[in-house]
Simulated scan of single mutants.
Amino acid sequence: MPELPEVEIIKQSLAKKIEQKKIKKVIIKNRNLRFKIPQKFEELLKNKIIKKVTRFSKYLILNFSDGSFCLIHLGMSGTIHLIKKNDLNKYTNVSFYNSPSLPKKHNHVEIQFQDLKVIYNDPRRFGFFKFLDNKQELINRFRHLGPEPFFKNFNLKYLLKYFFNKKKDIKSFLIDQKFVSGIGNIYASEILFLSKIKPTKNAMKLSEKDCKKIISFSKSVLNKAILKGGSSIRDFKNTSGRKGNFQKEFKVYQRENLNCVRNKCTGKIKKIFISNRSTFFCNTCQK
């Protein structure tokens, strides 16, 4: 599943290509995504001018010039491909995971502009598109989600209050979007390793020092992942020719039974399952 850094890279890629452009036509080839695309969707988007492409958490947001919005969530396997007229570049994927070129199957939504088109591909169909009439609807849509790690309100006071008397493990909190938006399974393991915190530790037992580490490393890990192009796992170029290679920076994720990379640590990386998700940690330096 694409996490915050991957969605940020997609946002940046799209912003360069489709901002200030008018949507000429929308073609829906399969309405049966996570939420069924309504019949009127094509007409709602037609002739809309994209003022800005933004992001919140793992959601892409097309901001239209008339004050309406289109929300896009990529689900587990969704990718967005940019096809330019008369361009023979085989790398169409604006992200760094799954197929680098446009697959022949599962192309469900096509948004056409004057000189290019954006195609949404999703084999598992867990993603969705949602049209919102105004800013208040957008605010309401995100009301149940926690702050992003980059927000000012993701601070020590927030963490201490949220964790008070909570017996749930810290790893489960980090991937809970109601607590913090945008951190997924991969980055949670990396953040906890850098913080020297065992993923099974009860949140209520975290010290102020622990919480400060989580705040700091949440920001730094995600920022570094964005700069590195996200965690593609498969290493290929996107439409701009850049590679997503944050996976080369992993300290624990997918390093089961390998030696800990921390200096003078004699531990091994172990794999367990928390909330049905694979979790990696050092059995010695994370306490």
Rank of each mutant, 00 (worst) to 15 (best):
153 N>K: 11
1 M>D: 03
14 L>F: 04
251 K>W: 14
227 L>M: 05
230 G>Y: 08
286 Q>G: 06
199 P>V: 08
157 K>I: 12
98 N>E: 14
278 S>E: 01
119 I>E: 04
152 K>M: 03
184 G>W: 09
67 G>Y: 01
122 D>N: 09
259 N>R: 15
216 S>D: 05
54 T>F: 00
247 Q>D: 04
68 S>M: 07
22 K>L: 07
33 L>I: 14
98 N>V: 01
234 R>G: 05
160 L>I: 03
260 C>S: 05
238 N>W: 07
178 K>I: 05
193 F>R: 02
6 E>Q: 07
60 L>R: 00
276 N>A: 09
49 I>K: 15
287 K>A: 08
275 S>D: 11
139 I>Q: 15
70 C>K: 03
193 F>E: 07
112 Q>N: 12
214 I>H: 11
248 K>D: 15
24 K>P: 03
100 P>R: 09
145 L>K: 08
235 D>L: 15
34 R>D: 14
48 K>G: 01
187 Y>V: 06
63 N>R: 00
232 S>N: 07
37 I>R: 07
112 Q>V: 14
58 K>N: 07
270 K>N: 09
247 Q>C: 00
228 K>D: 13
97 Y>R: 12
193 F>G: 03
115 D>T: 13
121 N>M: 07
20 Q>F: 11
196 K>C: 08
39 Q>K: 15
78 G>T: 09
84 K>Q: 10
6 E>W: 06
35 F>C: 01
12 Q>Y: 04
152 K>Y: 01
96 F>Q: 10
276 N>Q: 14
20 Q>S: 13
59 Y>K: 05
193 F>L: 04
52 K>L: 13
142 F>D: 06
246 F>D: 08
180 V>T: 12
285 C>I: 02
280 F>K: 01
137 E>S: 14
3 E>Q: 06
250 F>S: 10
57 S>A: 15
143 R>T: 10
173 F>Q: 09
228 K>C: 10
143 R>P: 01
29 K>R: 15
126 F>Q: 13
231 S>P: 02
42 E>A: 14
178 K>W: 02
80 I>Y: 02
243 K>C: 04
204 M>A: 00
125 R>A: 13
268 K>I: 05
246 F>A: 07
181 S>T: 04
219 K>F: 10
214 I>P: 12
158 Y>I: 03
273 F>G: 00
230 G>W: 11
67 G>I: 04
4 L>W: 10
145 L>R: 07
57 S>G: 15
1 M>C: 11
246 F>S: 02
14 L>W: 03
210 D>P: 11
229 G>K: 10
35 F>S: 10
32 N>I: 05
215 I>H: 11
89 N>G: 09
242 R>K: 14
67 G>S: 04
12 Q>S: 12
56 F>P: 02
31 R>W: 03
9 I>Y: 00
118 V>Q: 02
277 R>L: 02
23 I>C: 06
82 L>C: 08
57 S>N: 09
59 Y>A: 11
108 H>W: 10
253 Y>L: 05
100 P>T: 06
105 K>N: 13
251 K>I: 10
198 K>G: 00
177 Q>N: 14
113 F>Y: 08
107 N>Q: 15
255 R>F: 06
287 K>M: 04
96 F>Y: 15
104 K>I: 09
222 L>M: 11
59 Y>W: 07
14 L>Q: 02
29 K>I: 04
111 I>V: 14
103 P>M: 04
41 F>G: 05
32 N>R: 15
18 I>Q: 06
56 F>Q: 11
204 M>D: 02
45 L>C: 14
149 P>R: 13
101 S>V: 00
138 L>T: 07
49 I>T: 15
